[in-house]
Design a protein around this nucleic acid. Structure first.
Lengths: 362, 362
DNA sequence: ATGAAAGCGCTAACAC
DNA sequence: GTGTTAGCGCTTTCAT
């Protein structure tokens, strides 16, 4: 590739060629104004022709500021995290920071290792979908500025979607459609969001006089949903709320596969509003969280801390959510809620579409 | 956050405490074996109790090896890139490298800027979905090890899916179903993959005696597909091949929205096998590329170059693809290929499912 | 406004 | 095997 170890063009090279001291060159780039306009111009000129690029690592060594931020996700292949990272990226880049990505691949050990490696090179960390315990996170937060995204950790600045409000809106929506009993299909047992959603649903159900059942935990993917659908048949309901969209989509599949019509027989709601939610048939009613905005907000908070702000350790920043109504929810049918005969062909109330309050999902 | 500028625990601190020279400490960590086992043990011990962590930036400054790799993507929110990045991540991490993410946000200027900033901090770069011209890429490849992913650039090591073979398989599949004329819905005009797919389709069509039309270019998203569907109606075909899955899904939507049945009236095929492909109704027949494997392969090649390998500037590495047959393609109906009456309700041949050759898509 | 010199934390020669 | 001594490229006092 490179012929012979091409040494960088250094500040000294520029200094010599411009007939000034190294410190002057340094000032020209980091502290303009503290240097004579004419000199600065000349230096810049020379630097340009010499092809000088300031070396961020050397700068970091001497300033103890790397201008890098780490974002830790549990699975970058998951579009939910992709969106968050995108938000982080844009804010970081704008502020002159570089983003270092650490993917824990859903494993605790990998996560720790990734963190260990990234830590000394960054000025701060965004933890999105961490597997670590609250305590472990607090320990890290003591060493470096940390902002947690998508989960509230006491004593650590956090940014979370308004899950509670989302759950309440879902309950109200379903109640408005005449449903009187809901079933919640829980996600991973350890999930913070799952807990919040369930509890909010519980409160809302009480307020609205709805009966509420819970099933699960399930792995938060389509397969998990299909399995959950089987259980659902044992104790039929007219409305199910799933921990997330993947699970909800699986539930719809499982239900339909067994001859239950959605939404005619059962309404289904998810959380997240992933891209697929509007592509499936029927479109999935879901609670949309501002993923990208969340990443951006977390990063702004992080940068503030990096630049010396106290780090608001009070209540977490709560991001507004939005109920996106699509075809998977409908008026409760007056018919019994028991599964239709399995011989019935899956008739198409398919012609669902666009009543959707939906906006730009991608 | 931190009370008072906590200076790092340095190699000197450890050296003093262990009663050895700094270089010995250094060796203990970077070149074990070159140091007395007993001494090494003691050093490690001391380092541990002191909480010493070697500073990668300082190390980089002195060795000119940062142990960081940059991966440039055009949109990290796009699951296709997410998968690739995941592949990059795992290989890089395994090899002790850290990944620096640069998202060009589909903009040339952002891409250049991101690259400029990342370049001096990394040992090599994976370019996934770059907007830059081949020439520009070659320039960069002269300065730093570069591997291009998903596109072949002459004189620069590249890793690409076997688009040509994919296109041929699609043509054969469709021909096998009795289709005699295909329409290709092109993606972005500037896309390298689009060109390859089109040309391969052209050859295959000739071989198989199929008529082939082309429409587009279209923006490679669902909306673009819906628009393309309108054009399609003007000159009906029984089979359409779209540049990618999003576009294909859009086409299916557009077609169905206008009363054309898929696959009964028209078969539709996409490329990529994104997650949504198996979730839509009917499931989308598509060409699956090993995204993650691609990221991994590119990274392995990059690491080899970083470690001094020549950088195979010959033919690109070609990754095998796989045709995933789902419900969106079917035997050509003997009926005319003209669109069904628009008044016809969208009847459900919906009961598609699982004939699919599909395996693990996520 | 500019220059000189010391040092960030680590590694790489080169002695011993 | 281990210690000594220079730097890597940049910023930062402290002088001037």
């Amino acid at each position: 590739m490179d012929g012979e170890r091409a040494r960088d063009v250094t500040i000294y090279d520029v200094a010599r060629a411009a007939g000034v001291a190294a410190s002057t060159v340094s000032r020209t780039f980091s502290r303009p104004g503290r240097v004579n306009a004419a000199t600065a111009e000349r230096v810049r000129q020379v630097a340009d022709t010499l092809g000088y690029r300031t070396n961020p690592l050397a700068r970091a060594l001497s300033t103890a500021r790397t201008h890098m931020l780490a974002v830790l996700v549990s699975d970058i292949g998951n579009p939910v995290y992709g969106e968050m990272v995108r938000g982080v990226q844009s804010v970081a880049t704008q502020a002159g920071y570089t983003v270092l990505l650490a993917d824990s691949q859903e494993s605790d050990r990998t996560e720790r290792a990734a963190l260990e490696r990234a830590l000394p090179s960054v000025d701060g960390i965004v933890l999105a979908g961490s597997r670590m315990s609250d305590a472990a996170i607090r320990v890290i937060a003591k060493q470096k500025p940390v902002v947690v995204l998508g989960r509230a950790v006491v004593d650590v600045p956090s940014v979370v979607p308004d899950n509670a409000r989302g759950a309440r809106e879902v309950a109200a929506h379903l109640a408005g459609l005449g449903h009187s009993a809901l079933t919640y299909v829980a996600g991973p047992a350890a999930s913070w969001a799952d807990g919040v959603r369930w509890r909010a649903l519980l409160e809302a159900a009480e307020e609205l006089q709805l009966r509420l059942r819970r099933t699960g935990p399930s792995s938060p993917d389509v397969a998990g949903g299909v399995r959950a659908a089987a259980e659902l048949l044992a104790q039929p309901t007219s409305a199910v709320v799933a921990y997330n969209d993947q699970l909800a989509i699986g539930v719809v599949r499982g239900l339909r596969g067994r001859g239950v019509r959605v939404p005619a027989d059962v309404s289904v709601v998810g959380f997240d509003n992933v891209g697929a939610a509007e592509l499936v048939t029927p479109g999935l009613t879901t609670v949309a969280a501002p993923l990208q905005a969340g990443g951006a907000a977390a990063t702004r908070a992080l940068l503030a801390m990096v630049q010396g702000a106290p780090g608001s350790t009070g209540a977490p920043v709560v991001l507004p959510v939005r109920l996106v109504v699509r075809g998977s929810t409908a008026q409760r049918s007056r018919k019994s809620t028991s599964p239709a005969s399995r011989t019935t062909t899956v008739s198409a109330s398919a012609a669902q579409a666009s009543t959707s309050t939906d906006a730009g999902s991608r």
